[in-house]
Computed example of a mutant assay.
Amino acid sequence: MNPEEIQITDWGRIFLGEVPGSFMLEVVIRIAFMYLVLMVSMRAMGKRMAGMLGRTEMAALVSLAASIGVSLQDPTKGLLPVVIIAAVVVTIQRFIAWRGTQSSDFEQKVMDDLDILVEDGCLNLEAMETTRVTQERMFAQLRHEGIFNLGKVKRVYLEANGSFSILQFPEERDGLSLIPNMDPELQESQPRAAEKLACTSCGKLMQKQSTTKSCDRCGKEDWSEAVHC
């Protein structure tokens, strides 16, 4: 289309494009067919496609979406290529799923392994840097689970599918407060731990009377009063 052919008041072009109005009926048929292909493909790839997606499931879904988009919008593209692409994607996905049940090493290479982000009330900063999980993101996840004291957390696993698994200590413990600084009133309502400070970077605890200024876990020198809850 030449630039001079583009008019802001050309509502027919804006809403219908450069296809005849009869193509709208064809789009309905194409959408119904694509919907059927998607449902059959996802059913063939297993129940994981209806739950939280891993890397292979996400790749399969994106591949299907990419193949469908072109055939929906372009009247010159047929529907048979979509069926072929769907068959290939389903075959690859089912093979990966089957191969993963036969070899844990293969599954780990394809799906990745889990990472430990919190250990015994302290952040694993190295693992968080590797997985691109920030301290703010980690604290927000813990607060979402009703946890407001880092010391209560025994382990946080970042699963291969990107979800968090959180294990807590059953008893009350000392630790770094997870209440944000912008809410000082709620911070002050938390009971303070006796004679203990918490590193604001990793959560490591230290006695107040200690002469050490830097954290022996992360090397930072920023401390706050530990809480006990």
Results as ranks from 00 to 15, higher is better:
G121F: 05
E57K: 07
V133D: 03
E171L: 10
L80Y: 15
S163V: 05
S67F: 01
Q135F: 09
L114N: 08
E136A: 12
A86V: 05
R173K: 13
A97C: 12
Y157G: 02
P75I: 01
A127D: 01
V83T: 05
T76R: 15
G146Y: 06
V70N: 12
R143L: 12
S163G: 12
E126T: 14
M128N: 02
D120F: 13
A86P: 04
S165A: 11
G78H: 09
A160F: 08
M111W: 07
L80K: 10
L123T: 00
S104M: 12
L125D: 01
T130G: 12
T130Y: 15
G162A: 04
K47A: 13
F164G: 02
Q102R: 13
V83M: 08
F169L: 09
D115H: 15
E159T: 05
D74A: 10
A86L: 05
E129A: 13
E57N: 08
V88L: 09
A127M: 07
A66F: 06
V153T: 06
E119C: 14
E172V: 11
G54T: 00
Q135C: 11
V90C: 07
M45Q: 05
G121A: 07
L158M: 07
N161L: 00
S67A: 15
F139I: 14
L53Y: 00
Q141E: 15
R143I: 07
M42R: 12
V90A: 06
E57Y: 00
K152D: 12
Q108S: 13
T134W: 12
L114Q: 09
D74Q: 10
V82N: 08
L61H: 03
K109W: 13
I68K: 00
K152Y: 10
D112F: 11
M45F: 04
R48H: 07
L79G: 07
T91Y: 15
L158F: 02
A59Q: 06
L142P: 00
R132P: 03
N161V: 04
M42F: 14
L80N: 10
R155V: 11
G146I: 06
P75Y: 00
L167S: 12
W98E: 11
F95N: 03
E172C: 08
M49F: 06
Y157K: 13
M45R: 05
L117N: 00
V83G: 05
K109P: 04
Q168P: 07
V110L: 10
V110C: 00
E171W: 11
G54K: 03
S41D: 07
S163D: 14
D74V: 11
I92P: 00
V90L: 08
E136T: 11
S67L: 06
R132G: 01
E159Q: 08
E159H: 02
A50Y: 14
